[in-house]
């Protein structure tokens, strides 16, 4: 067993590309759920919208990646409008069911044979999706690796830009929630009717929160497509959304840095457990599990973590119980 490798692998994943993608999805959820109280269970649909925008524009239509990013933003906005106009008037649990159903509906559509020419069916779209981005890589071409962190030159470039995006959106959210706008959405989270009675158009605020959260989630998808150069429908399962919720709740909902803290801790724990178990199996310390069981065990621990968090520390590990984001209604 090499604890050095375990540590370096774990750390690399904790602040790696996947953590960034989930972090962006969670920043979006924080706007929607944390501050506004919208129980969006279909965040993965926004991520998929961003990712598929890149896939379809770059691969299917052979157009520029920069156009694709624009399309990704538009697609997320459009999706938010289509989802929001009918559903934002519904009760919280109905909104949850509609959004999760819509995300599954979209996944089934893009993976269908009927639209295979556009979305690539179950195989998705694979190819040089992010080439234009990777061509801009300023890192020296003889770059091999950082100490401890084992990213390739290409990955490191994505990681740098990805965290910049996270910081950018976090600043945006910070600016919004400390303004009177943020006060209104927090009021909506606490009690919608009270805010209505003060003459605020609650629907518009909810829609703005849904669109903004959707666009930020969409950027998660764009990063995904660019980094992995592949977009596949079955990676956009409802579980993605629930991971993002776990991250948000771990870091603390309605806390500006919650998603960042949550994403890093979440992936540190998940990767750490995975690496440790794999190494122990390889070294023969554990013989009742096979290497492929590690994946399932990670999910089990994650689910257990979500339950424990929600039961014992719904405010997140660093949260303040008084400003708890949940169950205002």
């Amino acid at each position: 067993m090499d604890f050095g490798i375990i540590f370096s692998q774990t750390l690399t994943q904790a602040i790696g590309i996947t953590a960034i993608i989930y972090c962006l999805a969670a920043v979006g959820l924080n706007v929607q759920f944390g501050y506004t109280g919208l129980l969006n269970f279909g965040q993965v649909a926004f991520v998929a919208a961003g990712a598929y925008a890149v896939g379809v524009i770059v691969l299917t239509f052979d157009l520029s990646l920069w156009l694709a990013i624009l399309v990704g933003i538009l697609a997320s906005t459009l999706l938010a409008l289509i989802l929001g106009i009918p559903t934002l008037r519904l009760r919280a649990d109905y909104l949850a069911i509609v959004t999760i159903a819509a995300s599954e509906l979209l996944r089934l559509l893009v993976r269908s044979i009927a639209f295979k020419d556009t979305f690539g069916g179950a195989q998705g779209l694979n190819g040089k999706l992010g080439q234009q981005f990777h061509d801009l890589n300023p890192l020296p071409s003889d770059f091999t690796s950082l100490p401890v962190l084992t990213w390739t030159r290409q990955d490191l470039w994505v990681v740098i830009v990805g965290w910049l995006l996270v910081v950018l959106f976090t600043l945006l959210v910070w600016g919004l929630v400390r303004s009177p706008w943020g006060r209104v959405v927090k009021g909506i989270r606490e009690d919608e009717d009270a805010v209505v009675s003060l003459g605020k158009n609650v629907f518009v605020y909810k829609m703005q929160a849904l669109v903004l959260g959707g666009i930020i989630g969409g950027f998660g998808g764009i990063v995904w497509a660019v980094a992995k150069q592949s977009v596949q429908p079955d990676t956009f399962q409802p579980d993605f959304t629930f991971f993002a919720y776990t991250i948000l709740l771990l870091g603390g909902a309605a806390r500006v840095f919650g998603p960042i803290v949550g994403a890093i801790i979440f992936w540190f724990l998940l990767a750490g457990v995975g690496e440790l178990l794999s190494q122990m199996i390889q070294a023969g310390y554990i013989d009742f599990l096979s290497a492929t069981d590690v994946g399932s065990i990670r999910f089990i621990l994650m689910g257990l973590g979500l339950m424990l968090l929600m039961i014992f520390r719904p405010q997140g590990i660093f949260g303040d119980r008084r400003e708890l984001a949940l169950d205002a209604r």
Partner: peptide
């Protein structure tokens, strides 16, 4: 319907049109 997880002052600020 006091917005319980907001401060008294924030409640008041929210009222202004």
């Amino acid at each position: 319907k006091a917005l319980s997880r907001m401060t008294v002052m924030d409640n008041m600020r929210l009222g202004a049109s």
